[in-house]
Nucleic acid binder design. Structure first.
Lengths: 209, 209
DNA sequence: GTTGCAAGACCGACCGTTCTTTCTGTTACC
DNA sequence: GGTAACAGAAAGAACGGTCGGTCTTGCAAC
């Protein structure tokens, strides 16, 4: 009881000054992200995060109302990171087709990272089977953005094509291959799966003219 | 202590007569399989399985030394089931190419089932990140069989092809698409993903001659 | 003197697991 | 045919451990 909830008095939030914004919060989030991705969300308890951050329970629960909020923050962080990387790759590419190749290369590079353990969103969705869970919503939002971005790129590529293939179909095919590559890479080996994905993307661009 | 192990005197084991083999064991396994697949392995506790089987703890732990053995039995059951279905489909098919189509159709049919929740093996692997875990071994064995079976089929298909494509590459591509379809179907919708997978398999067979 | 963080006791719930006890069939032996 | 033995299953108390989450206290900094 004691503390009457308080949320009005002092500095509301968002960096009341001080040295570095939210030092402990970022340390907590970074540690949790690493552990969640590497060992699974359900498999990592709050205590474990606290020990490795390091931080105390009180600090943790001041920054995150519950573990679920931490999970959400983790996934949103990954989403932000991927969007920035993809958008940078698109802007650098000289043509829509090269932009698609760049997106494919980004996936392939991801696969080859030694810490790679699969797609963070697919793994999270596997751990949260309930379709109404907020975690699932973040996953779905990310995937919706991804496939839309791809469809726009394919639309531009196919504008000059005589056969006029369906950009939506191509985008779906790309996502399907990406999901399969992400899921299979650390099970069957990066080399064979990464090569198959690269051939798949190249095939998608050449076969459809 | 008491009983000196005894295994010679009475009926040793393996069904000493009686009514039905291992009634409770099968009920336990069937219930656990349904729950593990539908809600996740880690998410389902022993107590839950006991309540729905129904059975008691003592009965459970006589048939399964630990929960992990139950998980292994669950996955081995799915493996047996899939192998039987695939081998039946292959034998029925009039040609290797049609056998591959049949395997693809089996995947697509699976996707369309209302209880479909993704690939049991991929979900299990996602829940057990440790590469040395016995669960991972079962998953890897299943996948190794699957890709080998596909490569043999593609080898037969390509024997008459002038371009002589690589059967291993084709098999890897098939698995990649299957993994992607299985993972994406219950996230993005069965219709679009199922259609993309069907086009992918057909493309794989026609593009490579 | 308000705020952020450290440190840790504490909570109820549930985890997988082991145990004791009782009841039932079936089997083996005399 | 009678009886003792035993495997299988039911029922449930209890184990130590960990889960996510709350609370109190003390200290340091702006």
């Amino acid at each position: 009881m004691a503390a009457p909830t308080r949320s009005a008095p002092g500095g509301p939030n968002g960096g009341p000054g001080g040295h570095g914004r939210s030092e402990a919060r970022e340390r907590l989030l970074a540690t949790a992200s690493k552990l969640f991705y590497g060992e699974g969300i359900r498999a990592v308890g709050v205590e474990r995060i606290l020990a490795e951050a390091p931080a105390t329970r009180a600090t943790f629960y001041r920054h995150f109302p519950s573990k679920e909020d931490l999970v959400l923050a983790y996934l949103r962080g990954v989403d932000t990171q991927i969007r920035a990387a993809v958008e940078a790759a698109i802007e650098t590419a000289p043509s829509p087709a090269d932009a698609l190749r760049a997106v494919g290369t980004a996936v392939a590079d991801d696969l080859a990272r030694p810490e790679f353990r699969g797609c963070a969103f697919l793994k999270a969705a596997a751990e949260y089977p309930d379709p109404d869970d907020p975690v699932r919503k973040v996953v779905l939002d990310h995937r919706a953005w991804y496939v839309t971005m791809l469809a726009e790129l394919f639309t531009q590529v196919f504008e000059t094509s005589p056969r006029r293939p369906d950009p939506q179909h191509a985008a779906r095919h790309f996502v399907m291959m990406r999901d399969g590559a992400m899921t299979g890479a650390h099970l069957d080996g990066v080399d064979s799966v990464g090569a198959a994905f690269h051939r798949g993307v190249e095939g998608l661009l050449t076969v459809l003219h």
